[in-house]
Amino acid sequence: MGLCVGARAVRIGVMPLAIAGLLGSGAVAWADQLKMGLLVPGSVSEEGWNRIGYNALKGVEEQLGAEVSYVELQQNPASFAKAFYDYASQGYQVILGHGFEFQDAALEVAEQYPDTYFLISSSDIHEGNVIGLNTDTSQPFYLMGVVAAKMGQKAGLVGGMEIPPIQQAFEGFKAGARSVNPDFPISEAYIGNFTDTAAAKEAALSMIAQGADFVQPNASGATVGGFQGIAESGKNVGTFSIFSDFTEVAPDNILGLYKADYAQGVVEVVRSIMDGNPPQSNVAFGLKDEKVMQFTFRDDGPSSVPEEIRTEIARIAAEIAAGNIRTMSN
């Protein structure tokens, strides 16, 4: 593939398929086998956000029999557009840009390829053939905020870039904490990228030095640096694994895990496109989608969330799923 310099493209597991037998009535008549491409802002070998995108691609391959390929990119908007162009020009019918940062490039390219669907993770957009797939992280982060305010005295939030998905998550955290204590102190910092683990580590250590006893990193590939800082502080600081299990990084600090089975969500969206029923609005997964979003507590750590708080969290989660609690101010 003629992808941009510095990108790494990989085609995986091509599987022959009789498309006529896969598609139901009213389905899109693909000229060839379904082909899906993936753009990730980093390496799929890393646990966390990029691996989730890869798992989604593999889910489409395994469940829908698609020919799939992915490309690993640095944070360079010009390379995003080039990769979208390359996939679309080679007949890929579905391309997933795994992150909000791919949205502008998708809009640029989509105008020239109206028959290609551009799916954008962590986006609220729906413009023609550009469809946002947004997991509402404000909901599980709201639960983390409740836990932080009930168990601690001060919290710190370490973000990557100050973009809507990260802001949404942190707004949810703050709303949850302040539902318990309106004056609960929360510090917030952004490292300006998603790759600098050292910066995330230093930001976490700085917050702990200023009295934070709960620190939550959320910085894609750099997230692990935040957990490293929490662990190396030697303090009794709580946190939650997000997207993947980071217990090995901070074994004395992880209280639980927020994980989204985004892969299955993507599979169902692609399936609907193949069946001729593409989403008519932005797709938003939340606590109501039990197969997609899970929030669990850890039972094997040196510190754990008390049973009465767990019971309260279960009640709040049910209220959020039912639409009775707003996890964001707007």
Rank of each mutant, 00 (worst) to 15 (best):
C4N: 09
G6T: 06
A7P: 05
A31I: 13
L39M: 14
P41W: 02
S45A: 13
E47T: 12
G48N: 08
N50Y: 10
N55G: 07
Q63D: 11
A78K: 10
S79D: 15
K82N: 05
I95P: 01
I95Y: 02
F100Y: 15
E108C: 02
F118Y: 05
S123I: 12
I125R: 02
V130R: 03
I131A: 03
L133Q: 07
N134I: 13
T135E: 10
T137I: 13
P140L: 00
M151R: 03
L157A: 00
L157V: 00
E162A: 15
I163W: 07
A169R: 00
A169N: 00
E171S: 10
P185G: 06
P185C: 06
T195D: 15
K201Q: 13
D213P: 07
A219L: 07
F227I: 11
S233M: 01
V237N: 00
V237G: 07
G238T: 03
E248H: 09
A250I: 01
L257N: 13
Y262P: 02
V267F: 02
R271T: 03
G276P: 07
Q280H: 04
A284F: 14
G286W: 05
L287F: 10
Q294N: 15
D299E: 11
S303Y: 09
T311R: 10
A317W: 07
A322S: 12
